[in-house]
Structure formats: C-alpha cells, structure tokens
C-alpha cells in the first residue's frame, strides 16, 4: 500500500478509536453500543497495517482493487450498525409503549382512589360514575 494511503488510514483509524473511547469515558456512549464501532475501527486498522492480509481478502472475495474491499467492508459495517439501531429502537418503542400504558392505568387508578378518599371525607366528588 502506498505510504500516504497507509498514513491516512492509520490517522482515521486511531482518530476514531480515541473518539469512541473518549465518548464511552464521558458516558456519552454506552459500552453496549460501542462494540460495533470498535470492531469497525479494528478492521480499518488491520487493513491499514497488514497490506498482505488486505490483498488476500481482496482475492478471496473476487475483487480487483484493494480499495473495493475496504469500501465493501465499510458498507457492510454501516448496514450492520443501522440494523443494530433498528433493533434498539424497536426495543425502546416497546418499552415506551409499555410505560405509557402503565402510566395511563395508574393514573386512572389514582383518580378512582382519589375519588373514594374525597367522598369518604364528605366532599362532593366531580366526574362520572
């Protein structure tokens, strides 16, 4: 690999690595969501440092230019990360729904209890039922 390419790839790789670690350190990124990103970085670094491996993978998948291999892996990782997010969002949606339902149920229960307490204190209770 030309030395310039290698330097750029290493800079990007290490830059991303430190950014992710820093985000986790500052608790802006949860550990459970950092692993896919760290894997992406590792692959970038492995390809940048070990050109023979990149060439081997390139011939393995039938690509001609090593850059195609890098693009393909970058694309693949982005797809996986998006899919991972969709799973996380689905889970959050379910939890959000569950929470709202429980809130609504508790609110009605609270109103009922409140009405009972008010009427037992001899106050006029508003509303139906």
């Amino acid at each position: 690999m030309p030395i310039r390419n290698q330097i750029v790839a290493l800079l990007i790789g290490f830059g991303m690595f430190f950014l992710i670690i820093e985000l986790v350190r500052r608790r802006k990124l949860r550990e459970e969501y950092s692993w896919l990103w760290l894997m992406t970085v590792s692959v970038i670094l492995i390809f940048a440092l070990w050109f023979d491996f990149l060439k081997w993978v390139t011939s393995l998948i039938g690509a001609i230019a090593p850059s195609s291999t890098i693009f393909m892996f970058a694309f693949l990782f982005l797809i996986f990360i998006s899919l991972h997010f969709s799973v996380v969002i689905s889970r959050l949606t379910d939890r959000n729904r569950e929470l709202a339902q429980q809130f609504a149920l508790l609110e009605l229960e609270y109103r009922e209890i409140r009405k009972k307490v008010d009427s037992s204190h001899g106050k006029q209770s508003p509303g139906a039922d």
Partner: peptide, 18 residues
C-alpha cells in the same frame, strides 16, 4: 366523561392496538 363513561388516557398517541 360527560356521557358517563370511565376514561383512561394515554399521555400521547400510541395507536389503535395499544
């Protein structure tokens, strides 16, 4: 409530099934 039903309220729109 006026018509005499009991009402349970979602804090935001969650859809028919929910």
């Amino acid at each position: 409530l006026e018509a005499g039903a009991q009402v349970i309220s979602h804090p935001f729109n969650l859809g028919y099934g929910t």
